[in-house]
Computed example of a mutant assay.
Amino acid sequence: MATLHRPPVPALRALVDSIWAHDPSPGAPSLPGAREHVLPTGATHIALRIDGPPLHIFKHADDLHGQGLGHAVVGGARTVYHLRDVSQPSASVGAMLRPGAARVLLGVPESALAGQHTPLDQLLPVGEVEALSERLRSCRDGAGRLAVFEHWLLVRAQGRPVALHPALVQVLRRPGHPEQRAADLVRASGLSHRHCIALFRQATGLAPHDWLALQRFNQVLALAARPMETWSGIAAATGYADQAHLANSFRDITGMTPGVWRRQADPATPRHVPLAPQVLRP
């Protein structure tokens, strides 16, 4: 298995945080019933599968049927995990967007995409997704697909600069303090409470409170990837009242305890946590 993950070219960095391409190992076997927990980033994502079955997701472990989504989707900003079918190996490419980028690249604000997966072809002109998919399928490897996908993003962005409200630019770039509150963001923006919340939701898909909670969760994951860090130390460093407070929040966001995450997650892909294959009842 090979995964390429990098920042985009400079011309895209105001809109795109990172891009990636995944190639399964040659001859990788099918794993009937296999799923993985996909943990939230707080950002909007674009993802295209090049081969294999369409993307299929589940709300939780007891969801036996799930939802089929197609091969090209936009994942809106989420506050909690979902599960993804990984029973069939497949190649894919994708991007994690910055706040405000969805309106530029896809024509809709992040608030219209949040908390759900939307087929990409519902947001773009007829035939554009199929044409992109054909170009991606013609590539020999992940590096080639990543170049094609990045070029498509550049074409979509051409002449369409990101247009975040200046007050939001300052707020979103401020380094997050573990004990920062939504009221602090509103105060720093200089806007009225109602105006700030509305603009923030349009740009990120989340309310400031939820966005801050995910920024803190991101800090937790970064520290937890270091085996020497204790959960009590991580709780203290990230502003939780104690280890129990951290554990409860972690379980709400990820659907698993911190200990299970640490045993099952690969530090290289901490937001994609494999689960044992499920035996699904009819």
Rank of each mutant, 00 (worst) to 15 (best):
P7G: 13
Q88T: 15
R281P: 07
G52E: 05
H195T: 13
V9I: 13
A236E: 07
D51P: 05
P8E: 05
Y81K: 00
T44V: 10
H22P: 09
A147Y: 03
P10T: 13
S87N: 10
P8H: 01
P227G: 15
T44F: 05
A244R: 11
P282E: 14
T254D: 00
P119Q: 10
P125G: 09
S87G: 11
A237R: 06
A11W: 10
R145W: 02
S25H: 15
H37S: 07
R13M: 14
R156E: 07
V73H: 03
H65Y: 15
A268M: 15
P54L: 02
W20V: 11
S87Y: 10
M96T: 08
P208D: 06
S133C: 09
A224W: 05
W261I: 02
F217T: 01
L154H: 08
A21D: 02
A241Q: 14
A183C: 14
A247P: 08
H65F: 15
L136W: 02
A77M: 09
G190I: 09
I253Y: 00
R78Y: 01
V86D: 01
L168H: 06
A101W: 01
I46L: 07
L206K: 02
G52V: 00
E229I: 06
Q243P: 06
R13G: 10
P119L: 02
R271G: 07
G205I: 05
A236P: 05
A95R: 03
A241D: 09
W20R: 10
D121Y: 03
R262F: 05
A147D: 07
E128C: 11
S189Q: 04
G27M: 08
P89K: 12
G205F: 03
I57M: 13
H37P: 11
P282R: 14
R174N: 11
C196H: 05
E128L: 11
L105K: 00
L83R: 03
P109G: 12
H45N: 07
G70M: 06
V129D: 00
Q219Y: 09
V86R: 02
P227F: 08
D210K: 00
P178E: 10
R35C: 05
Q219C: 09
H151F: 03
Q180I: 11
I19A: 04
A244F: 05
H82C: 07
L168K: 00
A28L: 12
T41Q: 08
